[in-house]
């Protein structure tokens, strides 16, 4: 491994750690500044004040702020994200990690993968060709990007699910208590995922398409492309060479949108009853369940930081300017 590369990685790693730490501090501050009374959703107002005080003591909401902060950091280090205000006695890690996270990650990663592939390849081809087809695709995809997710989701649910019976209406599975072989469960799961996956792909593809198409149409006017053409390379080969630029764009977008991996599908999950973290986020905001919200927030910070870190590593291979100039301080 070249020394510059190692330096580069290590540098980025420390920066990422710092970002995560700042993110944790920000999470702490934000959640203490919110209005409203967090114990409202926990207690019947007819509960006598002594019981309320007891619960406030238990959650440590009456200690001075700096004490709460230290407690907060030590708990995080141990992996204790606290207990939910709403689901009495259930730790936040149990609520978020487990089924919900699995469902969301599976859905979102499939959606991001398909939309990235679709968007990038379409953008590559259309950006290179130009012409009527390009205009057609661009306008359609702009339209899709502007359509509210909620609306598209309801349409698909109604027509594909109810009218045409092609996909189930809601949920992640049809089998709640029946004994069925594993492959049936898996196929059923995928069958239930088709609806939300379609909605999300329709929603995210334009993002990749537009970006990539712009990059490619700018690049195809460059001198080196003219040179390649003069040398007699076929269109396909030129396209392959240009794809490196497209990939940089795609990696950038994925890194930016990586937060969506956790919380990107709030509307979709709500409409299709997909039991995931997006829906949990919405419910928790509604019920003022601060520990769960904080847990989701922290998880998102970690995911975004990691995604950007990986993107930086990939840039090193994709973007030659980084190899030449490097990012190590001299």
């Amino acid at each position: 491994m070249p020394r510059e590369f190692v330096n580069y990685i290590v540098n980025r790693f420390f920066q990422v750690m710092l970002i995560v730490l700042f993110g944790f501090i920000a999470a702490f501050i934000i959640f203490r500044l919110l209005p409203g009374d967090p114990t409202i959703s926990l207690l019947d107002p007819r509960v006598p004040p002594e019981a309320r005080e007891e619960l406030i003591k238990r959650f440590g909401l009456d200690r001075p702020l700096y004490e709460q902060f230290l407690l907060y950091l030590t708990n995080l280090a141990r992996g204790d994200f606290g207990y939910s205000f709403v689901y009495i006695g259930v730790p936040v890690t149990t609520i978020i990690f487990g089924e919900r996270l699995f469902n969301t990650v599976v859905l979102m990663s499939s959606a991001m993968l398909t939309s990235a592939l679709l968007g990038t390849s379409l953008g590559l081809i259309m950006g290179f060709r130009g012409g009527l087809l390009d205009k057609l695709f661009t306008s359609t995809l702009y339209l899709l990007a502007s359509a509210p997710v909620f609306w598209v989701g309801l349409l698909i649910q109604f027509y594909a699910g109810y009218r045409l019976n092609m996909i189930p209406i809601a949920g992640t599975t049809s089998f709640y208590f029946e004994e069925v072989p594993v492959y049936v469960l898996v196929l059923d799961y995928i069958h239930h995922m088709i609806g939300p996956l379609t909605v999300l792909t329709l929603f995210f593809t334009p993002l990749y398409y537009i970006y990539v198409r712009n990059v490619v149409s700018n690049v195809r006017g460059e001198d080196f492309v003219l040179t390649l053409r003069a040398l007699g390379l076929s269109d396909l080969r030129i396209l392959l060479r240009i794809s490196r630029f497209a990939l940089i764009a795609t990696v950038t977008i994925i890194a930016n949108e990586s937060a969506l991996l956790i919380v990107g599908a709030v509307f979709t999950e709500t409409i299709f009853g997909w039991n995931g973290v997006g829906r949990l986020l919405y419910d928790s905001i509604f019920k003022a369940d601060y520990p769960v919200l904080q847990g989701i927030f922290l998880l998102t910070i970690i995911v975004v930081a990691t995604a950007n870190f990986i993107a930086d590593i990939l840039y090193y291979f994709l973007d030659p300017r980084i190899k030449v100039k490097g990012l190590t301080r001299r």
């Binding site: 309801l154 649910q157 109604f158 699910g161 109810y162 019976n165 189930p168 209406i169 809601a170 949920g171 709640y176 709500t270 409409i271 299709f272 009853g273 039991n275 829906r279």
Partner: peptide
């Protein structure tokens, strides 16, 4: 079953889910 949207619940009943 948990189905958050009112219209979705209605569709599910109509569909027999």
């Amino acid at each position: 079953r948990v189905i958050p949207e009112a219209e979705t619940r209605f569709l599910a009943i109509k569909r027999g889910e």
